[in-house]
Every structure is written in C-alpha cells, then in structure tokens.
Design a protein around this nucleic acid. Structure first.
Length: 288
DNA sequence: GCGCAGGGGGTCG
DNA sequence: CGACCCCCTGCG
C-alpha cells in the first residue's frame, strides 16, 4: 500500500507527549526524531509536529485524513472543554496547564478491552511488551519504511489460541482472563456491536463488568479510552486516589479513602467531563 | 557487567 | 482481604 499524508494546520490542544504518555494507549513509540509511530486498525501512522502543524503520514487502509480525524478526536473542541474545567478550581487549572495537549483517542473497543485486562496489576513497559508479542504472533504484518509492524489481532484471529499459548507470551495469570473474554465475545455472550448502540451508561458498564478480568477500574478505562467514548467514566487507580485525596479529601491514610466518596466528588465537580478531568489530574500527578 | 530483590494502571474467590 | 504471573527496572 502507498504512503499517505495529512497535515493538520495550526493545531490546538495537540501535543505528542501529552497524548501518547498520558496512559491511555500502549502501542505508540517515540522515534529518534521525536515523532511517534503507532499501529491502530490496519494502519501504521507516524505523527510529528512542525511548529503548530501536525503531520500524519503512513500506511492507511482508508483515507488518512478521515481516519486520523476520528482516531485523534480532531472534531472535538478541547479549548472549550479546558476553559470550562479550568474554571472549576485552581487544581484543575494547573493540571490543564501541565497537560494542555491531551486528546482522548478513539481506540478500537475490542483492542482496548484486551489491553486493559492485561494492564491489571502490571507495569507499562511489560503491558506494552505483551501487547506487542500478541500482535506479532497473531496479527498481520504491515511493512512501512522497511520495518515490520503488526496489527492487533481480531477476535477471530484469537479464536484458536490456547491459554498456554498466552502464558508463553508472558501474560501471567491474565492468560485465562483474556482467553475467557475472547470466547465470551466469540459466543456472543456479549455483543460489542450492540454495546456500542446502547445509550444507557450504567447498562454499558454493567455489561463490561461481566467480562472476565474486567473490574471497575478496567471497565472505566474501556468506557473512556475506546470508541465508546463515555466521558462520564472516572477510572480510579492508585494515582487518582492519591491526587483526589490530596486535593479534595485530605485523609491522613489515603488507602482508607472510600471509592464511592471519590466518585461522588468527581461527579459533583466535573459532571459529564469527569473522564477527561481525570486524565489531566492523573497525568499531572504521575509525571510531575 | 550481572545477579537479584522488589513491585506494578486490579481482579477474583 | 490475600494471592496471583512474571517482565522490567534499579541497585549492589
């Protein structure tokens, strides 16, 4: 396939580091020249910045402009969102100044489910390694600039994979969870197409929670970081608990902070922007 | 350099 | 609430 290119002129709210290092994705890697290359769908895309312009180039199954507009959430006005959130309090304002170039990606639902099941009690370098090995073993090769990249396998492409095969790729105790979830989807115990049509937030969340290896935290990550794009979701992990306690609760022992307490505050303060607010806070606290 | 201990974006029983 | 797999990192 031929290389395509799309240049987004004078981009606002688009910083490579903020987008790719804020913890929402696992398949983007920094190049020596500062650009990032990643695989999503059947595409290998390289993203770089030249002044205020963003340059997307690479192997793209369909039109690269349409594809990137969707994946990078380019039709959403982040300036407006940031203005709104900045007015809530000084903490939000500060965190947004820090991560002002964040965008929430529209990632494939199935890939996001598996990726975040793998993320449980795991660290980012290892998560990335596991996903890469799965792609290399079961996905399809795409050659770009003389290098091999691999698509994330489809549900069908994982249908004949045994638990032991997954264990061999280093998934550890998550192997059975990935296996079970894959088969629940193959058997249509959960139908992802239907799930994407479902309007009711709690119904979608409850359905995700029936999947093996999907608890509250993972479900909320899927809701927020996939094409489900439910920004009401507020994933609570150790970092979010820490920052929320520090800023709004101030309990001496942060491990004693109640989850429902955090959720209540998040809803009151951020409403249907809770998810993106969480990203600014999380990124700010973890990086700084 | 290399060997080793420690820990990690939670979930499940 | 404790166990859970094992790659990665950092320190000695």
């Amino acid at each position: 396939m031929k290389e395509q290119q799309y240049i987004l002129k004078n981009a606002q709210s688009f910083e490579l580091k903020d987008i790719f290092d804020c913890g929402q994705c696992f398949r983007w890697n920094k190049e020596a020249d500062g650009s990032y290359t990643g695989v999503f769908g059947n595409n290998v895309i390289n993203v770089s910045k030249q002044g205020k312009d963003v340059i997307f180039k690479g192997i793209c199954e369909e039109n690269i402009e349409t594809t990137c507009k969707k994946y990078f959430d380019l039709d959403r006005n982040y300036e407006e969102i940031k203005d709104k959130l900045s007015k809530i309090d000084e903490h939000m304002k500060k965190s947004i100044e820090y991560g002002s170039g964040i965008r929430i990606l529209n990632q494939d639902l199935w890939e996001t489910i598996i990726s975040f099941i793998i993320s449980a009690n795991n660290n980012i370098p290892r998560i990335k390694g596991i996903i890469e090995r799965i792609a290399k073993r079961y996905g399809n090769e795409i050659i770009y600039n003389g290098e091999s990249y691999y698509t994330f396998p489809t549900v069908e492409e994982l249908s004949n994979v045994a638990v032991e095969d997954l264990r061999d790729l280093g998934l550890g105790f998550r192997d059975i969870r990935v296996y079970e979830t894959t088969h629940m989807l193959l058997d249509k115990k959960v139908d992802l197409k239907e799930l994407e049509q479902e309007e009711d937030f709690n119904k979608v969340r409850e359905t995700l929670l029936t999947l093996s290896g999907v608890g509250p935290k993972v479900a909320d990550c899927i809701l927020l970081f996939s094409t489900l794009k439910r920004w009401e979701a507020f994933p609570i992990d150790v970092w979010v608990r820490r920052v929320m306690n520090e800023l709004y609760i101030q309990n001496e022992d942060e491990t004693k902070v109640n989850k429902t307490q955090i959720e209540k505050i998040a809803k009151e303060k951020f409403g249907n922007l809770a998810g993106i607010a969480q990203q600014y806070l999380f990124y700010w606290k973890r990086e700084a």
